[in-house]
Simulated scan of single mutants.
Amino acid sequence: MTRNSTRADSALNAARRERELAALGDGGVIDVLVIGGGVTGTGVALDAAARGLRTVLVDKHDLAFGTSRWSSKLVHGGLRYLASGGVGIAHESAVERDILLTRTAPHLTRALPQVVPLLPNIGAAQKLLVRAG
């Protein structure tokens, strides 16, 4: 809420959106502009604002318009790409996940252990891919 807002004025609505967009045009300095209010955009905006940066998030629809209500809130490391043999993209995804866990947002993320059963009917090539993951 801004200093001049009231509690009833805190809800996201068209009038507030118009007023705040007009205020953005008044020449104030913006540190971070995030385009897209999906799960990634809102996460980036939250992180930037939490770090004290003047952050603006814009989307052509309302906040989280296209975000699934069934979001797992997981940051995967690309293991699903291994199933189709995409070792390169799995590696790239794992590297990006490590950056997120250790540098970008260690305060918002944590590693969780994972168990992948190697059943008797799994071939040697698939076992190697699982172990690589």
Rank of each mutant, 00 (worst) to 15 (best):
M1L: 03
R3D: 15
S5K: 08
T6Y: 00
R7T: 14
D9T: 14
D9Q: 13
A11H: 03
L12W: 11
R17C: 15
R17M: 10
E18H: 14
R19E: 06
A23P: 10
A23L: 15
A23V: 06
L24R: 08
G25F: 11
L33C: 00
V34R: 13
V34P: 02
V34K: 13
G38K: 03
V39T: 07
T42Q: 08
G43N: 06
D47V: 06
D47Y: 02
A50D: 14
R51W: 02
V56S: 00
V58D: 02
K60T: 03
K60V: 03
D62N: 04
A64Y: 04
F65Y: 06
T67S: 15
S68L: 05
R69G: 15
W70D: 07
K73R: 10
K73W: 06
V75K: 00
R80P: 07
L82M: 13
S84H: 04
G88L: 12
I89Q: 05
A90M: 03
A90Y: 04
S93Q: 14
R97L: 14
L100N: 05
L101W: 08
A105I: 10
A105D: 01
H107W: 15
H107N: 15
A111K: 09
L112W: 09
P113Q: 08
V115G: 05
L118T: 05
L118A: 04
L119A: 14
P120Y: 09
N121G: 11
G123D: 13
A125W: 07
Q126S: 15
L129I: 01
L129E: 04
V130Y: 12
R131Q: 12
A132T: 08
G133Q: 04
G133Y: 07
G133R: 02
